[in-house]
Design a protein around this nucleic acid. Structure first.
Length: 204
DNA sequence: AGCACGATTAACT
DNA sequence: GTTAATCGTGCTC
């Protein structure tokens, strides 16, 4: 596939756990006024189906969850705690509500602007949380529903360096302590831990 | 119409 | 370890 091409719909038309694992190492790209910001995805969580009581789709199809019922490869951006925007990508075929939450990136392009947007934060901690990365990349409710398989709307995901399984840890999803078992403990969090000093290849 | 709570973060003790 | 900030959403009355 062409370099710098958004991942195709086929990538997203799969179970949330598979997409969540394979998104590790991919490059999240944000275009703002012609400037390109990007980072390597290092942490994700899978949310799959109405049965998954941690997934917003547990409430069925509502105005908020409608995007998750739509075509795969769209952004699902929602607002929480009265102040934070969180970015997901919709997965599974249309009609099947599922999404993958993006929780952390390794800043690459536009590092200066990213750090400026995260003023006061050390570089190491500037994008290591789901609400931190949306702030760092200028993502909010305006991006809800955008097509991540097209560069037209300034937000997409490209191929990046493959990360070996040895670097990937799994565990329970974060921040859902009120959710009943087995959903509270099911290991649908995927965290890449590259060796110290690792820098993604092919970047200037 | 009212209410409890949230896929969080930063700043506390 | 604890807690305030802050408001959309979904549920109950």
């Amino acid at each position: 596939m062409r370099l710098s091409a958004p991942l195709s719909p086929a990538f997203y038309t799969r179970p949330a756990t598979a997409v969540a694992r394979d998104l590790l190492g991919m490059r999240l790209v944000r275009c703002l006024d012609g400037r390109r910001l990007s980072g390597i995805i290092l942490e994700t969580e899978a949310y799959q189906g109405e049965e998954d009581l941690a997934c917003h789709a547990r409430a069925g199809r509502t105005p908020r969850t409608a995007v998750m019922y739509g075509p795969p490869g769209r952004a699902y951006v929602y607002f929480t705690y009265g102040m934070h925007w969180l970015l997901n990508c919709v997965v599974e075929p249309e009609g099947t509500p599922a999404a993958v939450l993006l929780r952390a990136i390794f800043p690459l392009e536009g590092r200066e602007e990213i750090l400026a947007r995260r003023a006061g934060q050390p570089a190491r901690a500037c994008c290591d949380g789901p609400a931190k990365l949306t702030l760092a990349l200028g993502i909010d409710g305006g991006q809800n529903g955008v097509d991540l398989c097209s560069p037209a709307e300034g937000l997409w995901i490209e191929a990046g360096p493959a990360l070996p399984d040895a670097w990937v840890q799994t565990g329970p999803r974060v921040g859902i302590h009120r959710v009943p078992e087995p959903w509270r403990s099911i290991p649908w969090r995927f965290l890449a831990r590259p060796p110290d000093g690792w820098v993604p290849p092919g970047v200037g």
